[in-house]
Design a protein around this nucleic acid. Structure first.
Lengths: 225, 225
DNA sequence: GTAGTATTTAACCAACCGGTTAATAAAAGC
DNA sequence: GCTTTTATTAACCGGTTGGTTAAATACTAC
């Protein structure tokens, strides 16, 4: 049977590729890599299924491309963050807010990370691209901590890697697990008040923990007062 | 063709049911609900596939049963934790360690939670069973905080729900995302030293944040000394 | 303007999958 | 001891899925 193509089509390989990647990221984030469907990605990209294989590759390659794109996006946002002119405590506050805002506005990133951890990072491990995208945040944190100690605002001996993980964890867990936490607590964790409370709590907790004197010396000062 | 059953088999409906649930939990935790396969669960349970439908139900019902079992398990462990005789700071330390140990020893629980959040808790919302399994932890935390403020060890105005989420997040994120974090940082976060460091950091950070005086009053005391 | 290449469409395929049907046999009940 | 019920096994099925093949057409190069 002679095939009848639709109205004239134009070549647009770059546009096609971008639409495919956008659709892939959304689908993999929403359904996970096992629940995602090639046909749904094609439909969302307004492309023939063959296009996915032609432009990018099989499902696994598509997923890795989506993951790399997500990392590229966050690294880009991280580099734009400029904390140089801020006092250490303000810089920490800004960092916490940035992390929270990023996860809040890009839940697909957390979904892709969760999926990647489910698969024990086996795709990430194969990505040369992501290996080269180092987060500037640990170095940034080390610098902020150094300045804080020097100025007397912060106590010493805080590991920047641990602090980085902690700052990420405070937002990530709340936002990524909000569905089960909201169900368990019988309250909407994503309400405006709830979110504002959470940000305030995180900032307060981290700054309180970093403040110089929040150790045995503080106990002596408090006892003497 | 006449079917030939294997050597004699005995009825063991309770044993069968338990093996099915154990196999289901392992499979859903390892592969997610979309990646999990009914045939693999049956094989691991040493059961005919029909048995899964006969004893429990379809794939969704099986998954919900596995999720409920996981919640039952953690609630059981939480109830066994007895902090009454501990000083507030020691109680907080113990709570952090319990949370860490539980997630470390039961990674399947985190995997199931991640999967459930991917599906926006739509199974959990249907579970009457889990709704009735309230965590004793928030009340426990409220009590510890009260005692801490009364004894002068802790500052006031810390929300027990926020603190609960924070304590859970510090361990959960580290352990659940250890595959991607290890790959990104180029270091093994699950090494013995790394884990010990993490526990120490979490405990130090939370206690430092709770300590009375880690506010503006501290600044005044430090300035006056 | 024609041949070649790249991009795109349409249709197809083998394997897989969740779930069902039919049959067998162990145990219970009378 | 025979009938009924319950638990279990074996085989089957329709639909879905990732991936491929074949063909058509837009565009490029000469």
């Amino acid at each position: 049977m002679p095939r009848k193509p639709p109205s004239r089509w134009q070549r647009d390989p770059e546009g096609m590729r971008q639409r495919i990647l956008d659709a892939a990221r959304a689908e993999f984030a929403k359904r996970g890599s096992d629940g995602a469907r090639i046909d749904r990605i094609a439909r969302a990209a307004k492309a023939n299924k063959r296009m996915l294989y032609y432009h990018i590759g099989n499902k696994d390659a598509l997923y890795l491309a989506a993951l790399e794109g997500a990392y590229e996006h966050i690294r880009d946002a991280e580099r734009k963050l400029n904390l140089e002119a801020l006092a250490p405590a303000d810089a920490i506050t800004r960092l916490i807010e940035f992390t929270w805002d990023y996860f809040l506005e890009n839940p697909e990133f957390m979904a892709l990370l969760n999926n990647e951890n489910l698969h024990r990072a086996r795709h990430l491990k194969r990505s040369k691209k992501v290996k080269q995208m180092h987060s500037p945040f640990v170095a940034l944190l080390a610098d902020i901590l150094r300045k804080g100690v020097a100025s007397g605002a912060f106590r010493s001996n805080v590991d920047p890697v641990q602090l980085y993980i902690t700052i990420a964890s405070l937002s990530y867990f709340y936002l990524s697990n909000n569905a089960t936490l909201s169900t368990i607590f019988g309250r909407d964790l994503m309400g405006e008040d709830a979110k504002a409370e959470r940000v305030a709590h995180m900032t307060d907790l981290v700054l309180a923990a970093l403040r110089r004197g929040s150790t045995a010396k503080l106990d002596r000062l408090v006892a003497a007062s």
